[in-house]
């Protein structure tokens, strides 16, 4: 890390944009999992990193991307994860999840909908196994947990990645709009 990168805020607009483009590149490069923690950005871009993030949002929008942050409950922006997501849904741009994993996640979101933050693991396993084979259900839970979509111990909670990537209200509308048996549409207009 150079001393220039850690310079405090208060620089000229051009410098701010230059920093924003460097931050955008940093956010684009995956290091195992998408996104960068706030404290990493502070260490590299100085205490004014939140201001730089605002410019990153504008620059990202030009590329069809959206800057999202996932905050940890009760902790400040330094502990939030900042990441870029596509402005278009996975239906258009593709998803990192297979059909089985996506189905499992949709079911888990439906089970935790309406303020019910967590569901007993046994209940989730039971619901999944009613639709998928036992082996597939276990695999999906493992993969979703590994990718950060869910947190699993005795209970299942939605993970940081679901909070960042999935529009829960939109999913609820989509689930309601489908007529079981293939009659409805999975993608209602927003």
């Amino acid at each position: 890390m150079s001393s220039r990168e850690g310079a405090p805020s208060g620089q000229a607009g051009g410098d701010l944009r230059d920093k924003a483009l460097r931050m955008l590149r940093m956010l684009l490069v995956n290091r195992g999992r998408p996104g960068v923690k706030g404290w990493e950005l502070r260490r590299r871009f100085g205490p004014g990193y939140l201001k730089v993030l605002e410019v990153v949002g504008v620059e990202a929008a030009k590329l069809g991307l959206e800057l999202r942050s996932v905050e940890e409950e009760g902790k400040g922006p330094d502990f939030a994860r900042y990441l870029l997501v596509s402005s278009e849904p996975a239906l258009e741009v593709g998803s990192p999840l297979t059909v089985v994993e996506a189905a499992a996640l949709a079911l888990i979101v439906a089970l935790t909908y309406g303020g019910r933050g967590e569901v007993p693991l046994k209940e989730v396993q039971q619901e999944l196994q009613a639709k998928l084979s036992k082996w597939r259900a276990e695999q999906a839970l493992y993969r979703l947990s590994r990718l950060g979509y869910i947190e699993v111990d005795d209970v299942v909670r939605l993970g940081w990645r679901t909070k960042a990537e999935v529009d829960v209200e939109r999913l609820a509308r989509a689930l309601i709009a489908i007529r079981p048996g293939g009659g409805g549409s999975a993608g209602p207009s927003p």
Binding site: S86, E88, V93, S95, P96, L97, A106, V166, D167, A174
Partner: peptide, 8 residues
């Protein structure tokens, strides 16, 4: 349904 609501 999930794919229509997921912004990866």
């Amino acid at each position: 349904a999930l794919y229509s609501a997921q912004f990866p």
